[in-house]
Design a protein around this nucleic acid. Structure first.
Lengths: 200, 200
DNA sequence: TCAAGATGGTTTTTAGACGCTACTATGTTA
DNA sequence: TAACATAGTAGCGTCTAAAAACCATCTTGA
């Protein structure tokens, strides 16, 4: 009985937080694109990957991206490896405007939850997302830190452990491990990532 | 840092679960209307109330409702009290189709969470919704059981406690206490509702 | 009491979202 | 090398949505 309430709340909350008209002159779909390219890693910044992430068609994604391109929020270039593929990058204009993301109200709401609850909450959501994605036959889109493809690169340099992606066979910078990836596959026993201490 | 992940997950999950094309030939917006009228109480089954709930304009709501009306999912009639107002009721056709609600995949996902977590989860979502609603200046839409307007009616009959709404000054059936209401105002110290035992 | 304003609902207009189909270009496989 | 798969785009029709204009009906306040 409670699961029904949860489903409705999730749906409704997502709707309320995003569907709030044209913030900064951008539509909800356009905000979704900016958000995605701000989070996606190097291998996933393409129209197709966004379409998969956003559960829409490549045609629709192409249209939204074109509009953002025209408005100067995205720059695009052909990939070297695959000449069909296009790589998209946020411009500074886009990075600046992301501070006014209408989703920030949801972030604040999440922030007001007790710290202890936030972890459980985020885990529960992730589990639900995984299940729904599987049911719908969609890629789950996670980050390296819990991905089967993450491998420790043999040669460490400068005292830091080096990582690589077993799927693309490319080495990864530590900063890249938190980007969302379309090639993600859930890994039960995850590798512990050693991060350099960041001075506050 | 985690609150950002929570916000994105909520948004994304809502999107994935609902934006899944035309299930049963109905659009996501139309599903939202059916869901709403299945949950809304007597005082809230109007186009305006739905528009407020769904964070859209009355014009848009009117259009969606008209379409559902034409397809035989809703019946409408003028209100007696206020001759401007229109009351909408789900038809049997609508009630039947609600079993195939695409949101059910989310319900299943929520159901797979540990029972102990479900309550916390639902509470956390409710709290977030309350905060976002407040920030956006929207009515929070809750049920009688935690509403300031709920009052115990002086005269109980047939051994059952009778309740009434202090806002509309109308008495309430016990079954009605779980309907979503547009006049809802959060009540910190809630009245304990005595429900008749339902035989399984 | 009656004019002014608020509210409930609809329509029209316009822009964007979206699914669908068709199409080109490039990669991959048999 | 032919057949197929994939990345991306373009065009079409429908749906979503906001905004503005509009009518009918309360509600208010001087």
């Amino acid at each position: 009985m409670n699961s029904h309430a949860i489903a409705e709340l999730v749906f409704h909350l997502g709707r309320i937080a995003s569907g709030e008209g044209l913030v900064e002159g951008l539509t909800p779909a356009q905000w979704a694109v900016l958000r995605y390219f701000a989070r996606a890693n190097r291998f996933s910044r393409t129209p197709s990957a966004f379409a998969a992430f956003h559960a829409t068609t490549r045609g629709t994604a192409s249209q939204t991206i074109k509009s953002l391109n025209n408005q100067g929020y995205l720059t695009s270039m052909r990939s070297e490896d695959d000449k069909r593929s296009i790589r998209l990058v946020l411009t500074d204009k886009a990075k600046n405007i992301l501070a006014n993301d209408p989703l920030e109200s949801l972030v604040r709401a999440a922030d007001s939850l007790p710290t202890s609850a936030q972890d459980h909450f985020s885990n529960a959501l992730q589990q639900m997302l995984g299940q729904v994605s599987q049911e719908r036959g969609r890629p789950p889109f996670g980050t390296c830190t819990s991905c089967q493809h993450l491998e420790v690169d043999g040669c460490s340099r400068e005292g830091q452990t080096a990582y690589m992606c077993g799927f693309t066979s490319e080495s990864l910078l530590i900063e890249e491990l938190d980007g969302v990836c379309i090639n993600f596959i859930e890994n039960k026993k995850r590798i512990t990532v050693k991060r350099p201490v960041i001075s506050a």
